[in-house]
């Protein structure tokens, strides 16, 4: 069996939105996941010094078997080279430049057989989003960045005034009607939300709890449901991405109508079906949402509808 394509999370957002902080936050939560971080440049020391174990030219080796490479203007070249330069990677974080259009980067991934787009995550600085969205030069770029997002992390909510935060919410809602929005401080979004669960359908990892901040466990909720075999998986996925269900992230190991197991990945309105690992025992789906927004009853109803 050929290797599954590597999932790639595209991390976009304008300068100062918190992309690098998010990357560092995810690296600290990696907990055994081997992440490859691709950054546009090493210029502003993108990685916390404490995480760096060594440097070999354009590759930084990081704690826990993770790596960081810069790609400059040759993203495709870096992606082509990555599998031969670094072995055993589980997930790629692709941090775009502040003016890049994450949607265009995502389209480029579709050309590369060894990768699949997992999600486009765009960060927004709650203090400046509304102003930037009317900037003489950058307005259309900012709006196009949001429009490509599956997940918007509205960041720095602890620093922004109520008025700025409110204006940022309106800007994003207008620019990215299909994106799920999560409000965070210091880019502290749980890894299971941003990158998906590593080992679902077990319970989400402890990473839901974010040290040093309001306990993430009080901000997020999750549930596990059993999915009987014989499901039309694409149809199920379409129902699960209905925004009224409140699912930010879900992962399931599910059997299709022929009994063959698949992995279903959901982030916001985007879903993807992979072949399941050979030893997978299908039947469960785990979903994460914001506390108070994840509608467990509606999720269960969407399953029931499936079997009728």
């Amino acid at each position: 069996m050929s290797r599954l394509p590597l999932p790639v999370t595209v991390i976009g957002g304008y300068l100062g939105a918190g992309k690098t902080t998010l990357v560092n936050h995810l690296l600290r939560q990696a907990a055994g996941r081997r992440l490859a971080v691709l950054v546009n440049d090493f210029g502003a020391l993108p990685i916390d010094a404490a995480l760096i174990e060594g440097r070999d030219g354009e590759v930084l080796s990081l704690a826990g078997g993770c790596v960081c490479c810069s790609y400059g203007s040759d993203l495709v070249g870096a992606l082509l080279d990555l599998p031969s330069r670094v072995l055993g990677i589980d997930h790629v974080l692709l941090e775009t430049s502040g003016v890049a259009l994450p949607g265009a980067v995502a389209a480029t991934l579709s050309l590369l057989a060894g990768y699949r787009l997992d999600a486009v995550v765009v960060l927004a600085d709650a203090e400046t989003t509304a102003t930037r969205a009317t900037d003489l030069y950058m307005a259309d770029t900012i709006v196009r960045q949001f429009a490509a997002a599956d997940l918007v992390l509205l960041n720095k909510i602890d620093l922004a005034s109520a008025a700025a935060l409110d204006a940022a919410r309106r800007t994003i809602a207008e620019a990215a009607p299909r994106a799920r929005i999560v409000e965070v401080a210091r880019s502290a979004a749980p890894i299971d939300v941003v990158l998906g669960m590593a080992r679902a359908p077990a319970a989400p990892s402890v990473a839901l709890s974010t040290p040093g901040h309001v306990d993430a466990a009080t901000l997020y909720d999750w549930l596990r449901v059993e999915v009987p075999p014989g499901e039309d998986l694409a149809g199920l996925a379409e129902r699960l991405v209905d925004p009224t269900l409140g699912i930010l992230r879900a992962k399931g190991l599910l059997a299709d109508r022929t009994g063959r197991p698949h992995a279903l990945h959901i982030v916001g309105a985007r879903w993807h079906l992979d072949d399941a690992p050979a030893d997978a025992r299908p039947g469960d789906l785990v979903a994460i949402g914001l506390r108070g927004r994840l509608d467990a009853a509606a999720v269960r109803r969407s399953l029931v509808k499936a079997s009728t």
């Binding site: 304008y14 300068l15 502040g98 003016v99 259009l101 030069y137 950058m138 770029t141």
Partner: peptide, 9 residues
């Protein structure tokens, strides 16, 4: 079109 370098930079 596209910006290759933002004004701040």
């Amino acid at each position: 079109g596209l910006w290759y370098t933002p004004p701040e930079v």
